[in-house]
Design a protein around this nucleic acid. Structure first.
Lengths: 339, 339
DNA sequence: CAAGAACTGATAGGCGTATGTCAGTTTGGA
DNA sequence: TCCAAACTGACATACGCCTATCAGTTCTTG
């Protein structure tokens, strides 16, 4: 049996198509009895409005804006590539996406960048957990622009959705890998982050410290070093750590700037330490392959971009989202399961 | 500027819409000069036929058939749930999917089940690597039915695509986890599989043995036991292994039937052994949480089903597929990064 | 140069839904 | 009972493309 159309529903309910449409799209009030009849007919025929036809008829276009950090963060470049790739792919479905850059370490700048956004149906933003930013996000939502946060969330804000991983779970995962890979050895473990003002970094740090403290008391955690995701600074930090702590056997890089760490480790020839970092890049892949890195914890930028776009489109159409499909997983990569 | 339509292209190329359509859909021959003009106009206007309108006009429907193993394999049940969920979601895009069951250990039955398939646009099958099956797959493709293999491949066959993981990489991943988690300890490691006649099991086994032999010579691999994915048999095998080998410190279950192993381990109270298994189920989750399992290697059934459907749809429309989106990753789950 | 072949343009109708208009019917309240 | 308000049906147009038809034009080829 072929798909039911709106006419089938009207016939079955004993009303006109116009009335069915009024029920479906809340166009104007319909007598309760007829509403019931229509709803019964829809159920009986298992009718779903044809999304293609609906979108064609509405002539809907989707204009999205992605707000990303400026600078040379490799992971963020990856996100941009995915946006470009997916946008051209979605051009055939009337989706347009622009990218704007801003300083991710400066809440005021980010907030005013968000305030300046007009004429878009949806915004995806790599956010910063700060009252000004929260307010800006709420403002966008209030103006009718759908907002999703990407990679880094603003928990209190009225954003429609957060596209990203559970970062404290990611930190716990790093700790368990560290603890198990060290397999009972005792010694010191260093931690480097970009900035604890970044919510994702703070949460990873929290999760890592939590599990290390509870499960691996024989490992001594060194104080966190904040190095602003800069490769030169993380490299120097790595040199310092190894110089000051001969019994350093583990290193966890919470944020970006992994390149600097890898370079330093290669030069120092320290292959015995367990080193765990985040995000898959050309550098971190190579380091996994040659054993400089023991494990990488990652999130799939392609999945995140596609998810952000799907969620924004669904919100614009007031359709439900498929939670399972939009959950971003915490990927663990070893040398052997690289994509 | 708004999207270009086929009329814009026609106007710009100085021909009629009919001619543009002839070029686009290879409907009949067009003078080379006009072909060039049309193609130039398409490029100039960055024209992409509106996929929604095209599908609406074509009135295309997609009828897919999923061929799955019968029996009580939990992972396969998960696949079925995902098919049901995604089918209702895709009903709005004119996709229908049926499920058929067959004996996965019997190549002849599977092959004749495939031969019996008619009236579908696409077939997704959990395959078996056997000449009869290969022939049946080739037959379907020859009859114009698109075929993708799911979870378990038939390498030589003309299938359009394989939706699943690289199983020898999965085996290598298991070995690396095993070796690193054991952290230099010496002892014996047991391996249980369903059957080496299943290509995915054979490949995992191969990858596991390969890495263990090369990288962890202090670990002695016991001979593989084939237990047909049955929980009672894997349970018994586990008891036997621990009874005969007091120095067993690791266990890898290549296939299904993990429940039996978990039950046995719980009863025996053996918490020191590193145990690695495949696929995320209610059982394996609980076992990860309480430490009975050290790690689970998994593939996302939801992703696989969605991917199979997307690939089949793309093939039916002769459209390219997004390789990155369709790559199924080898997921590693620890207690801390469970979804 | 005639006849057929190859090509082109114009146009109609359809896919399933959205949206708006307008006349006609029913209902509720005074 | 009557009028306004609430509701309903019928219909037209649009979205962008596909498919088919047919008459008209331009090329081949003998």
């Amino acid at each position: 049996m072929a798909r039911a159309t709106i006419e089938d529903v009207a016939a079955r309910a004993g009303v006109s198509v116009a009335t069915v449409d009024r029920v479906l799209n809340a166009r104007s009030t319909v007598r309760p009895l007829n509403v019931k009849r229509v709803e019964a007919a829809i159920r009986a025929l298992n009718y779903h409005p044809d999304r293609l036809a609906a979108r064609l008829a509405r002539g809907r276009e989707y204009r999205f804006c992605f707000v990303l950090p400026e600078g040379d963060n490799v992971f963020m470049k990856g996100l941009e590539d995915e946006i470009a790739a997916h946008t051209s792919h979605l051009a055939a479905e009337r989706v347009e996406a622009d990218i704007r850059h801003t300083d991710v370490f400066d809440a005021a700048k980010l907030a005013s960048a968000l305030d300046a956004i007009h004429g878009y149906d949806g915004v995806a933003v790599v956010a910063l957990d700060h009252p000004r930013v929260r307010e800006a996000v709420n403002g966008l939502m209030a103006r009718g622009t759908e907002v999703v946060t990407l990679v880094s969330d603003v928990p209190g804000a009225a954003r429609a959705h957060f596209v990203g991983i559970d970062n404290s779970a990611a930190g716990r995962t790093a700790a368990t890998l560290m603890g198990r890979f060290l397999g009972g050895r005792g010694g010191k473990v260093g931690i480097i982050a970009g900035s604890l003002a970044l919510r994702d970094h703070a949460e990873r740090h929290f999760g890592f410290v939590q599990v290390m403290g509870q499960e691996y008391p024989s490992l001594q955690l060194l104080p966190l070093r904040e190095e602003r995701d800069s490769a030169s600074r993380t490299g120097k930090a790595t040199r310092d750590l190894f110089a000051h702590h001969p019994d350093l056997i583990g290193l966890y890089n919470v944020g970006a700037g992994t390149d600097g760490i890898i370079d330093t480790l290669r030069q120092a020839g320290r292959r015995d330490a367990v080193v765990i970092a985040h995000e898959l890049t050309a550098f971190s892949r190579a380091a996994l392959m040659d054993g400089t890195l023991s494990a990488v914890i990652a999130q799939d930028p392609g999945h995140e971009i596609r998810s952000a776009m799907r969620v924004l489109m669904a919100r614009c159409d007031r359709q439900p989202i498929l939670a399972a499909q939009e959950r971003i997983s915490i990927d663990i990569f070893l040398r052997d399961n690289l994509p």
